[in-house]
Every structure is written in structure tokens, then in C-alpha cells.
Design a protein around this nucleic acid. Structure first.
Lengths: 237, 237
DNA sequence: ACCTGAACACCGTTCAAGT
DNA sequence: ACCTGAACACCGTTCAAGT
């Protein structure tokens, strides 16, 4: 007669993430650190070093541990990264909305804000989510989509679509901020045009590939509003 | 009076990719391999080993070279990967369409087909494209979007949206195919429900997270059709 | 200017101690 | 059962030869 069903088949770290483990009453000698502290340090390291600068060795060093000691807290780098990611993402904190369209707008805007706080989050390869906060975000999106009248299949597709779009907009924004202009030769538009790529040539010529992070906001908005328009339109086929 | 403007500021490998270099007339001793052969071997290695199994060492071995010899062909692993990716992507081969909506549908379907041929392609982190084939795909999408009457800003946003969606659908498809059922405990829906995540709980319970690759097709279709509906609807605000 | 061999500064992971 | 130290099998990259 436990109040919560426990996820017994998961690793210890994942069970902790789901709130199934009381860290106080673990057998054996006390850990020098809590799993929470390890994950917080992981977030901090990612924040400092970006996605390329993260490693178990550096994380261990920042915690005054040896690298292999991390394996007392976590089963693999992969598991640790999933939990660090989930920690950085955090719980969704969304106001209740009467209009499902506003709920979707808020969801997208708020998620994008998280990406701005931890930009490396947008760069880690997408996986199907199995961690608590990631699933809480998915849950928070599925609800308004249900209210919109989408069936289960469509809800899942739409959630994927929106989630990807927010991340992709974040990546585009960061990429454009960080790209040195030297990455592309001055005459690149000419090169493109001579090879028949008129549309991208015009794009480069317009400077839209240059860094204008403020206007990226319109990119996110375009996708969300276009999505909402599409759903609102009653289907014919 | 050259027929093509050359992209002079790019590395040698990139200039080759843009067709600016005649491999025959290079100074110095002859290479034992062509850059083309190196890239083809790179694609083959990715096809065999997936995104995690690729390394310069293995690539070199498959070419009967030492690892460091690769640096005669390419400036870094990053550059090599960009070119291998571009090679696997290939030129878009799309039939001319009178209807811009059909052109977009064809573009998405054909791109998804490429991902199915080289599934690892969907997993490499997204970057702003600068290579010939990647930009040719972008060009092929921008044209129908222009015909749809979207302005430059909206075209770029829409192109990003569609490109991301195709990739995300491919990833979801592959992930669901490959996920062992043991990754999630049997009582996971109960665990989710007990924590208030009713919507995702229902999702897991419905088995929609289980592998049904055939139905993934509907996910891609949902996004594309919803996009088209959204664009077709004249805006009010 | 190609390719090799050796070296460098890293990786993630495992295993046998010590406490 | 925690943590260390040592080792393993890898990484990408650089540099000094040899041809």
C-alpha cells in the first residue's frame, strides 16, 4: 500500500530522478556528494564549456573526485547526460490558460527561454524522452493539443513538430550569433548563383544568414502561428 | 574571364566540393587516393557503424592509410564530416511541379527517403548548411515557398521548420525501431499517472511509443499537411 | 607534397586494491 | 559501498622524419 508505484526496473539514478529513493537511507558508507550535487555540477560545467567541452574527467575535477568515482553515482556517461539534461531543462512552469492556442504559445515561448538559459541544451542530439522533466514538458503540451480536438496520433506528431521547431530555432539563433563572417567567402553569393542556386544566393546576399538574433524570434513565431492556423483550419480531405 | 567565380577563401577540400578544383593538375606527388574515394569510404563507414562508430582511425584503416594521412585530404574531422554528410545527402532530384504545395510534399518525401537510406544522417547535429548539396536542397525548397507568396523572412523560417520536421520524424522512426522494450519498466504508465502526468501516461499505455514504423509516415504527413494548411489560410492578424 | 611513425593530450570504462 | 590508482582501448591532432 505504497502511495506511489515504484519504477523498479530502472537504474538507481533514474529511480532517484523519479522520486523513488530516499537518499538518506542508503546502505553502506556515506557518499561524499549527493547525486543532486553531481548533476548540478554537470549543468554548471555545460554552461561554462558548452557541448564540446563536457567530459567526465572535467566534471570529476570540478567535484574534486577522480573520474571513475562518478560511476558510483551513475551507470554511464549516457545516463549522466540524460539526467544533467533533465536537470537543466527543469520542470515546466506554465500558467493555466483558457485558450488552448495561448497554452501552446506559452509552452513554446517558455521552452525557448530555457534554451536561452542553457544554450547547449539545444545541441544535444534529440532522443525520445524518458526522464521526468522532459516528460512533464511533453505532458504540458499534449493537454492543450487534446483540447484542440486532435486525436492521439496527431497529438504526438504535433508535439514532436513543435518541440523540434523550438529547438531548431534556438540552434539557428545561436549558430548565427557565433558564426564568424570569415566562414564564408565574400563572393559566396556569386559562387552560388553561378551554380544555379539563385534562391540561396539571394538569401546570402540579403544578409539574412548574418547575425540578427532579434529577428530569430520571428522565426519561432512563424512556426507556432502557422501551426495554429493549420490546426484551426478544418480539414477537407 | 572564367566561366565560374571561384570560392577562393575556402579550404582546398571545400573548393573541390564546389567544383573549383581539377584534381588532375595538383602539384607534387600523386595522392594514393582521390578525395572522392575518401568521402565514399566515409559514407560506407557511417552506413556500417552508425554515428557512434565513426572515427578517423577506422576510416583510415578502411582505406589502408594511417590516421594522420587523412590530414592530407582534409583539414579536420569537422570538415571531413561536413563533406561526408554532404556526399551521403546527395543532390536533390526532384521532378518539376506546377503546384507549389506538391513541390513541398515531394521535397519532404524525397528528403525523408535519403534519411532512410543513410539513417545516421538524421542523427548528426544540425548546423547551418554551407556545403553544395545541402544548399541545393535548401534552394529546392525556397523556390516553391517563394511561389507560395511567402516573404524572405517567412521562407527561411518555413524552410527551417520543414527541414527539422523531416529529420525529427526520421529520428523518431529509427528510435522507436531500435528501442528495446526493457528500456522502460512495465508499470511505467502507472508511475507517470501517479505523478500527475496523465497525458503521457495515456500515450505510453496506448503503445504508441512502441515500434510501429509504418505509422510514423503519418507523422511526417501531419506536419507537412498542417504546414500547407497554415500557409494557405490567409492571415488575419 | 605525400605518407609513416612516434608522440601528445585527451577520452569512457573496468578492475583490483585500500578504507 | 565508497573512493583511489592503475590500466585498457580508444580518440583527434601535430611534428619530425623519410621518399
Amino acid at each position: 500500500m505504497t502511495e506511489h508505484p515504484k519504477a523498479t526496473d530502472l537504474s538507481e539514478a533514474l529511480r532517484w530522478a523519479w522520486g523513488d529513493i530516499d537518499q538518506q537511507q542508503r546502505p553502506g558508507p556515506k557518499r561524499s556528494l549527493s547525486l543532486e550535487a553531481v548533476l548540478a555540477a554537470g549543468v554548471a560545467l555545460y554552461d561554462q564549456e558548452g557541448v564540446a567541452g563536457f567530459s567526465l574527467a572535467r566534471l570529476a575535477k570540478s567535484l574534486a573526485l577522480t573520474t571513475n568515482a562518478l560511476y558510483r553515482y551513475v551507470e554511464s556517461r549516457e545516463e549522466l547526460e540524460a539526467l544533467v539534461r533533465d536537470t537543466a531543462l527543469g520542470k515546466p512552469e506554465l500558467a493555466a490558460m483558457v485558450d488552448w492556442q495561448d497554452a501552446v504559445r506559452q509552452w513554446a515561448r517558455e521552452l525557448e527561454r530555457r534554451y536561452r538559459v542553457h544554450s547547449w541544451l539545444a545541441y544535444v542530439p534529440v532522443r525520445i524522452p524518458f526522464t521526468p522533466n522532459a516528460l512533464a514538458w511533453l505532458d504540458a503540451l499534449l493537454r492543450p493539443l487534446e483540447a484542440a480536438g486532435l486525436d492521439a496520433e496527431a497529438r504526438l506528431a504535433a508535439a514532436g513538430l513543435l518541440d523540434d521547431h523550438v529547438r531548431a530555432c534556438a540552434v539557428a539563433m545561436f549558430d548565427l550569433e557565433g558564426s564568424k563572417p570569415t566562414q564564408v567567402p565574400d563572393n559566396f553569393p556569386d559562387v552560388l548563383q553561378a551554380r544555379g542556386l539563385e534562391a540561396v544566393s539571394a538569401l546570402f546576399r540579403s544578409g539574412m544568414y548574418a547575425s540578427r538574433p532579434a529577428e530569430r524570434q520571428t522565426m519561432l513565431e512563424f512556426g507556432v502561428e502557422n501551426f495554429l492556423r493549420g490546426v484551426s483550419t478544418t480539414r477537407q480531405g
